[in-house]
Structure formats: structure tokens, C-alpha cells
Design a protein around this nucleic acid. Structure first.
Length: 301
DNA sequence: TTCCAGGTGGCAT
DNA sequence: ATGCCACATGGA
């Protein structure tokens, strides 16, 4: 168990229920259990003041070394969201209001390979079903990651495993037409890794994609959109949620909705939406997008 | 029954 | 370069 005090601008529901991740589930006590870096973990947060956004963070089933290696950056704890929020809130009133409804949002730094496949699955799909599909993939093809809280957990399957599957193998998971995309993309990732000459690399999952994380946003976008099943929206999600490209601005049906209803833009004019984001939200456009996404979904409930 | 969900590939202009 | 449309699946 690792504990950190005085964590600011933090709220579990805002972080794990804002559509950026799919393997975290809320527990009866309000904490979230999920799996990342091959290990199931429970994360809890107790605000010092009821309904506040500053408090004590505790992560169960990890040690200090694991916290420093993975979890500190996964939860984006080094970023000053207070500063970002006050800067973004000055941009316009719609965004200021959106920030109010999602004050504890943080952009997770997720594993690129898992983020890639997860967002291929996400297309033309809804969040509960996306979660089911991903769980199915992990249970059938992922390595066992041990038992935790009376449940068995499985890691996200490696590219080398998915690359050898047929659509028939994936049929029980009900991925629909996306099954083909997943196999195609897995094959491409494995091939690219092999071609890079990095044959002694043990972790075949992350070789090319981890390199991409270090590349600039245009290079990342070009490579990702060259993959089967990855278009502009999915590529931007991967760049934002897995590659620290906080200015990428994914436009899905919800963002289109918010840009239409609250910014009075033409619903089909994606170019104007992209331009508005880059001109007004700048380097933190992706974070602004998350506040807007969370906000419009709250309004619909 | 029809509509919808964190869209994209393929094809016709 | 842009505009349609089919694409699997399950819940509302």
C-alpha cells in the first residue's frame, strides 16, 4: 500500500468515468479497482473536505518502487491541474462551466499498445460494451495477473499473441467488424517492431509504440492513422491518453454535440472544431476536450 | 422496430 | 480532396 497526502485537483469518478480508460471498476466504498502494468490494483481517494478535490491518495497492491516507476506518471500527479484549469477557464464561459463539473479530471498516461487496441474497439460503440469487449480479450488471450479481491485478473494480451489469431478465434468476444482491424493492426505492430531490428527487446508490445511516444505529435499521428482501423479520432485518443500529447483534440459524437449545442457550431464541421481548439485552447486542448466531454455527458444524465 | 454508441474503410465523384 | 454508406453488436 502506498499513500500520498495533499493530492490536489483529484476525483476518482472524474478520472475513471470520463471515457479515457476501460479497465477500472468502481467498488462499493467508492474506490476503483483495475489493472495496469500487469498487476491488479485498488485506488482510493479521501478528500479532506466532503466533496472537495484535495485529499489522501492510497494505492493498494503496489510498493514504493512501483509507485515511482509507473503510478506517479500514470495518474499524472506531477502536473499542476490547478494552474491548467485557471488558464483554461479564462478562455471562454462554456469551458469554465465544464471545468466546474469535472474538477478532478486527470489525463492518465496509459500503455500505448493497450490504448491503441482499446480505441480501435471504441469506434461506433458505447462505453459499457467497449469494456466488455476488452475484458473478453484479456480473459481469453491475456496472461494471468493473479488474484485480487477475490477475483482473477488478466493482463492485456500482447501484440504477438493477437497477431496470430483469426477472426474466428475472436468471434466469442463479439467485436463485430473491428476484429479484423485488431488482427491487422497487431500484425503491423509486430512486423514494424521486427523490422526495426530491435530483436533482443523482450517487451515486443512497446518497442515501436514507445518510440512513438517520444516522437512529435505529427509523426505519431501519421503513423497511427496508417494503421488499420485507426482514423483521426482514434489516433487523437491514443496520442492524448497514451502518448502525452495534451494538445491533441479527439472529436467524437459527444464533442460534436458540445461544440454544436454550447458553441453553436455546425455539427458536421470538424475542421472548425479542430481550429477552434488549437486557436483557443492551445497546448492543453486535449485536457479542455476532456472537461467538455465529461460536462456534456453529465448534462445528458 | 428503429436508433444509437468516444468512427473508419472503401468506393464514387 | 470530399461525400456517402456498410459495417457487428446489444441496450434503450
Amino acid at each position: 500500500m502506498v499513500i500520498r497526502e495533499n493530492i490536489k485537483d483529484f476525483n476518482l469518478d472524474h478520472i475513471f468515468d470520463c471515457g479515457q480508460c476501460f479497465r477500472w471498476n468502481k467498488q462499493q466504498n467508492g474506490s476503483y479497482t483495475g489493472i495496469a502494468f500487469g498487476k491488479p490494483v485498488n485506488i482510493n481517494f479521501k478528500p479532506y473536505i466532503e466533496g472537495g478535490f484535495e485529499g489522501r491518495l492510497s494505492i493498494d497492491n503496489i510498493n514504493e518502487a512501483e509507485f515511482n516507476e509507473h503510478w506517479k506518471t500514470y495518474l499524472d500527479l506531477d502536473k499542476d491541474y490547478g494552474h491548467i484549469k485557471s488558464a483554461l477557464a479564462k478562455k471562454d464561459l462554456v469551458l469554465a462551466e465544464a471545468i466546474q463539473s469535472g474538477q478532478g479530471i486527470r489525463i492518465l498516461k496509459q500503455e500505448p499498445w493497450e490504448t491503441l487496441i482499446s480505441f480501435i474497439i471504441s469506434q461506433n460503440n458505447n462505453i459499457p460494451r467497449i469494456k466488455k469487449c476488452i475484458e473478453g480479450l484479456c480473459q481469453m488471450f491475456g496472461l494471468p495477473a493473479g488474484s485480487f479481491q477475490e477475483r482473477d485478473y488478466f493482463a492485456f494480451p500482447e501484440a504477438s499473441v493477437l497477431a496470430q489469431l483469426t477472426e474466428n478465434d475472436l468471434a466469442p468476444i463479439k467485436l463485430g467488424y473491428r476484429a479484423k482491424y485488431i488482427i491487422e493492426t497487431a500484425k503491423k505492430i509486430v512486423t514494424d517492431n521486427f523490422d526495426s531490428g530491435n530483436k533482443e527487446c523482450v517487451d515486443v508490445r512497446l518497442t515501436t509504440l514507445a518510440d512513438l511516444r517520444r516522437a512529435d505529435i505529427v509523426t505519431g499521428y501519421e503513423y497511427l492513422t496508417s494503421l488499420c482501423g485507426v482514423g483521426p479520432k482514434v489516433a487523437n485518443c491514443i496520442l492524448l491518453f497514451g502518448m502525452e500529447k495534451y494538445n491533441s483534440f479527439p472529436i467524437d459524437v459527444w464533442v460534436r454535440r458540445v461544440m454544436h449545442r454550447l458553441y453553436h457550431m455546425d455539427e458536421s464541421d470538424m475542421k472548425s472544431m479542430t481550429n477552434y481548439a488549437s486557436e483557443n485552447f492551445g497546448e492543453y486542448g486535449g485536457i479542455a476536450q476532456q472537461y467538455l466531454f465529461y460536462h456534456i455527458r453529465q448534462l445528458e444524465k
